[in-house]
């Protein structure tokens, strides 16, 4: 259950960040910022998931 909660919350933060970037950032820099947000999201999943949830 904790795994699901972590992944749902993390994904919700990511979706929120993507929504903010697509609404507020000018088109020219948007894609670079989206790549950065994506990097934090996926690296966060694969780094924090074993650290916080699995305890590896």
């Amino acid at each position: 259950m904790m795994e699901v909660m972590f992944l749902l919350c993390w994904t919700a933060i990511f979706v929120g960040a993507v929504f903010w970037v697509t609404r507020k950032v000018v088109s020219r820099n948007r894609i670079y910022l989206l790549i950065l947000v994506n990097l934090f999201f996926l690296a966060g999943v694969f780094y924090l998931f074993p650290l916080w949830v699995v305890g590896l």
Binding site: I35, N38, L39, L42, A43, F46, P50, L56
Partner: peptide
Amino acid sequence: DYPPFHALVLLTVLTHAMLL
């Protein structure tokens, strides 16, 4: 078993560098 997390973090960085 769980996937190899450390390798996946490295792959994430590599993927985004390649994407950029």
